[in-house]
Design a protein around this nucleic acid. Structure first.
Length: 332
DNA sequence: GTTCTAGAAC
DNA sequence: GTTCTAGAAC
């Protein structure tokens, strides 16, 4: 549950009502009725504003010839700076001062009907107080600390698989023990994830009792390959990342063409083509013989190895060069 | 995990 | 000049 913010461009002398800056939409201001500025030194298109309501700043670009300044530092024509609440923006020649303010949007929308209320309020941050006598939540700074803890509990990116696996639209197979989803950012023509319903954080949490489950995950992975028409012509591998980014243990089932626009960097490549990728049978064997899965120390260094073709071992200098090379092994 | 972007590499 | 990577932010 991300909090929504609206952004307001506030004239300090109250010459006009605050102007709402919509998230990531550019707004050009200068001499004209919106600002009430009549000064000829101010261009009709003096500044371009773009608010990022999530990050809590506004990008200001000086379009006009005469100086726009932030805390008395001139921006310069064609230049862009970020301003945050608390900083003072002068539209031109140290005149017509403005500040930006972010306000929690209780409706979760970007409506424009609270501008009159906003004008008379002092800047303060009472968002953690009960709402009954709140001052409408106007704040000088977006409290990222508070936001982050909420994200980690519910919506942090590393928890994404937990919700994806529950989404029927993403499920391609399920039984009483496991579910299969397509990888959201597939790194090859075919790329699935097999996840147990049981909440297991990572390989580290696996022990002997999980043997049957992990074997079942392997069997389901094999079924996925078998039902794929391309598996007659394309090789597949099944395995786990040694240290995955996403929480909840998941078995990758991936065709070996690596023909995907989502494969973008060295980490992507090496995570599937070095020993960072632990084959499913190896995990099963480690569980059976040791009762746990051990990952070699320094395994992360494998992610930084030079790019090397997994088929012919040729080293390629860049990702685009590697992708071009892969076409020779896996024509469409 | 991805996106964004500064600056390295070419 | 453009392409590409790698680290920060999310």
């Amino acid at each position: 549950m991300l909090k929504m913010f609206t952004c307001w461009f506030v004239r300090e002398d109250g010459a006009h009502k605050p102007i709402q800056l919509h998230h990531l939409q550019t707004l050009v201001l200068g001499r004209g009725p919106q600002t009430t500025i009549k000064d000829k030194k101010c261009s009709r298109e003096q500044v371009e504003l773009k608010a990022d309501c999530n990050k809590g700043y506004v990008k200001v670009k000086q379009l006009g010839l005469n100086p726009t300044s932030v805390n008395s530092v001139v921006v310069g024509k064609g230049n862009e700076v970020k301003i945050k609440p608390g900083q003072l923006l002068h539209i031109v020649n140290e005149m017509y001062s403005y500040t930006v303010r972010f306000r929690e949007d209780p409706m979760g929308n970007n409506n424009n009907n609270s501008s009159t209320k906003l004008q008379t309020q002092a800047s303060s941050d009472h968002r953690s107080l009960p709402a009954d006598k709140d001052d409408d939540g106007l704040c000088q700074t977006v409290k990222h600390e508070e936001k982050n803890t909420k994200e980690e509990r519910f919506g942090h990116w590393s928890q994404g698989l937990k919700s994806s696996m529950q989404d029927p639209k993403l499920q391609v197979y399920k039984d009483d023990k496991v579910v299969v989803i397509k990888d959201k950012y597939p790194k090859a023509r075919h790329h699935w994830l097999v996840l147990p319903w049981q909440s297991i954080t990572s390989l580290k949490a696996l022990h002997k009792d999980h043997c049957d489950l992990v074997k079942h995950m392997h069997q389901v992975a094999e079924q996925m390959i078998e039902q794929c028409p391309d598996s007659r012509s394309l090789p597949f591998r099944m395995g786990y990342h040694a240290i995955p980014s996403m929480s909840h243990v998941h078995l990758h089932v991936i065709s070996q063409d690596f023909d995907s626009s989502c494969l973008k960097n060295k980490k992507h490549w090496n995570s599937f083509t070095t020993d960072y990728f632990i084959e499913s049978p190896d995990v099963i064997e480690m569980l059976e013989t040791n009762g746990k899965v051990t990952v070699k120390e320094g395994i992360c260094d494998l992610l930084k190895l030079p790019l090397r073709c997994h088929k012919c071992r040729k080293e390629l200098p860049t990702i685009p060069a590697l992708k071009e090379h892969l076409k020779s092994h896996f024509p469409k």
